[in-house]
Design a protein around this nucleic acid. Structure first.
Length: 257
DNA sequence: ATGGCCTTTATCAAAGGA
């Protein structure tokens, strides 16, 4: 079973790339963030034509998440319980007995910003929710755009990013608190190339210079970590015409889909 | 190095992203 995440920064622009990527990689579930589409505009038919079902939670212009899958999902959840958040940043469903939770964590703008406080509050609510979810699901995947680079090795220039949003200590601590609930960073279960990132700024020729951050993650419950055979970042998408600024991340689990 | 890009919208300027 293959499960992937990709912040596509507008599904309208990136739909052909998503269709190609599905055909090429054949994930069982692909989680998308920043679809930036209202539900009535979701391209269900084009995605169905390549063999995928869809669940989506969108809004106009901003945010928006979706789950594309070969089999249909059940037990759909579209918000963090108890967090009164009008922004569409969460979508969860169960596939093949695996609880899949797709998230788009708020960016936070800057550590002085009100949006940063919203980010921390959002992460605290996520933590409570995950505590509850982990008590109910042995097989659980929490994945998406976390907008947090957890460790120094996840940042091209830790001195430059020190204290900045995406790498500030409070948000990294919030990330660690989620791991402490009983989740593992699938990417670090395996030997990986040095300077592996999932996001590169559109400016400054950041991709060509590999000035990136690893902010998109796939976290696995212990039971799934034990049967995880690979976690890869597909950098190739960042070289396409009009790329998303994020690359997809995918895990392979030893479960028959 | 401190800004350069990309996407969206009650568009041709501003906001948001990261």
């Amino acid at each position: 079973m293959k499960i992937a995440t990709w912040n596509i920064n507008s599904l309208k622009i990136r739909l052909p790339q998503v269709l190609d990527w599905l055909a090429e990689n054949q994930p069982d579930v692909l989680c998308l963030q920043e679809t930036k589409l209202q539900d009535e505009n979701f391209p269900i038919a084009a995605i169905a034509a390549v063999g995928y079902q869809t669940i989506y939670a969108g809004q106009k212009a901003y945010n928006g998440v979706a789950l594309l899958s070969k089999q249909s999902g059940s037990e759909i959840v579209t918000a963090i319980p108890g967090l009164n958040d009008p922004q569409k940043r969460v979508l969860a469903a169960v596939y093949n007995d695996v609880r899949v939770i797709c998230i788009y964590v708020p960016n936070g703008e800057s550590v002085e910003s009100e949006k940063y406080q919203y980010k921390l509050k959002w992460l605290a609510a996520l933590n409570s929710w995950m505590q509850d979810m982990l008590s109910k699901h042995q097989k659980l995947v929490l994945l998406g755009d976390f907008n947090i680079a957890p460790e120094e090795c996840d940042v091209h220039n830790p001195e430059l990013w020190d204290g900045q949003v995406l790498f500030s200590l409070p948000e990294r601590e919030a990330f660690r608190e989620v791991l402490k609930l009983g989740l593992l960073d699938s990417f670090r279960l395996f030997e990986q190339p040095e300077k592996s990132y999932t996001w590169w700024d559109y400016r400054m020729m950041a991709f060509r210079r590999n000035m990136g951050l690893r902010i998109d993650h796939i976290l696995l419950s212990n039971e799934l970590a034990k049967i995880c055979t690979a976690c890869i970042i597909d950098k190739a998408t960042r070289r396409l015409e009009r790329p998303s600024d994020h690359a997809p991340v995918m895990v392979e689990l030893k479960i028959e889909p």
